[in-house]
Every structure is written in C-alpha cells, then in structure tokens.
Amino acid sequence: MSNELNNPFAATDQERQAREKEKFIKLSTQLITWLLVIPVVAIIVFLVYKSWPALSVEFITENPKVRMTAGGIWAPLIGTFFLVLVSLIIAAPIGILAGVYLNEFARDNWLTRFINLAVVNLAGVPSIVHGLFGLGAFVYFLGMDRCLLAASCTVAVMTLPVIITSTKEALASVPMAFRVACWNMGATKWQTIRTIVLPNSISGILTGVILQVARAAGETAPILFTGAMISSRVADSGWDAWVPYGLEDRFMALSYHLYIISTQWQNVPESFKFGTAAVMIGLVIAVNSISIGFRIYLRSRKKW
C-alpha cells in the first residue's frame, strides 16, 4: 500500500476507470465480430446437410431430367459459366479502359466529375432495374431478342461500375512519384502507363474483375427477361455438352434454375434445390478464395 503510494507511476482512479472502459469496449466489439461468422457458417452447414443426399459427381455432370426430379444441373451450370465469361469479356476491357482514362488522363473538370458521379450511381442501381433496362435496350431496341448475348450485355452493364471503380483504385495505389519520374525522363503518358503503372496495378485490377464473377453468376434479375430459359435440351456428352449455347440462343443458368425449381415446379426433391444452392455458393467461395489469395500474394510483393 505504502509502496503503491510512493510509486510515481501508479495508476490513478481515473486511469483505472479508463482502462476498464477500454476492456469493455474491446470485448463487446470482439463479440459482435465473432457473431458475424455465425450466419455464414450456419448457411453453409445447413446447405451441405440438406443437399447431402443429392451431392455427387453425377449431380454436376448430368442434365436435369424429368422436370428436375432426376439427373443433375449440368445445363444451367454451363449456362452460368458462359454468361459469366461473355459478360466479363464485354465488361472487363471497357471497365479497365474507362478506369485508366478516368484515373490517368481525365482532367478534373465538370464532365469528369459528372462521369464519376454516374459511375457511382450506376453501381447502386438495383439488379431488377438492370434487367428491365436490358430488356428495353438490348432485347427490343437493339433487336437482339432474348439470348445469351443480351443477358451477358445486361450483366456487363451491371458489373461495369464496380470494375471501373476497382480499376481506378488499383491505379491510384501506384505512387505518383513513379509517374513523375517517367514523365521527367521523356516518357509519354501511355508509355508511363504501359511500363510502370499497369504492371504495378494489374493484380489489383484483376482482383476487382474476379470479384465480379461471383456477382455475375449469382444475380437472377438481370437475366430474367433477357435470355434465361426454364429448360432447354442440352446434349449429354460430346462437344455439344460443353458448348450447348450460342450467343443467340436462350440458355439455362443456375440462379434462374434455382428460382424455378424452388417456386414453380412441384415434386423436385428437396436435396436437389439445396444441392443447386450449395453448388452456387461453392462456386462463389472458390472464386472469392482465388481473389483473396491473389490479394495476399499481391500484398506480399508490394514493395513501397
């Protein structure tokens, strides 16, 4: 006691209280953070449990049979793959080029600010509105009819703003000093971008694009009116099984398929519905893991 009194570094009451408060805040924020994990784990465990009877290699590789009371999900799975592929082939180059323009070339004037505002707002448009826009713009106005291309264009428009934004962020993370050094050596802006800026931001740009895979694969609304179909005859084997849809064909997709078998059709085994959901979630987790791994690799290589 007397020791404590003599110790010039002993905590005062006020300091002790402050420390108690800190402990409380730390514990409660920690608890809330841990609670966040529960829904994720619960969903996955529940899905796997419910879909367990259906999950098999055949469930992936076989086409739906007898109104999805037998067979698997090959036709919608490959449809989703092509939807994602075509939409990113459209959106990635446009989004990356727009991001490069906005971050590297555009002057800070009202037009640039307006474009940036438009991009931000486009990112907030609900997907059902994108679906209706796609119906009006691609299906009717451009006369594509409902098809893989029209749906891909619609999904591309939906993913574009995020690709633009993530590209801009990746480019902006490259220090200005590198560009200044280049310009002072007589490099043009494009030479600077090609030799210094892009090589040091390409992984960040690709990460942004990869994250859009999950979004393009998961959304139902944009493809609802623009090309998805309830069921289509797809070959069980051979080349036609791998490339069942042309750009002008209507197609099956996982998200839409799940919607149909859950709400529109009777007698679909429960495990099939959950199996379809489990495969979708599995794909999303796989793709996101790739992008997270990419980001970790990128951070470990970051040298400034």
Binding site: P175, A177, N184, M185, A187, T188
Partner: peptide
C-alpha cells in the same frame, strides 16, 4: 518529350521504380 530526354531530373525523395 525530346526536351525532357535532354534533361535529367532528380528529386528530393529517391524514386526508383519497383
């Protein structure tokens, strides 16, 4: 561009490329 190639500039903070 040609002019800048005839000048060499060095800054306060070293800025080598990665």
């Amino acid at each position: 561009i040609e002019l800048r190639k005839r000048m060499g500039m060095v800054f306060q903070k070293p800025n080598p490329f990665p």
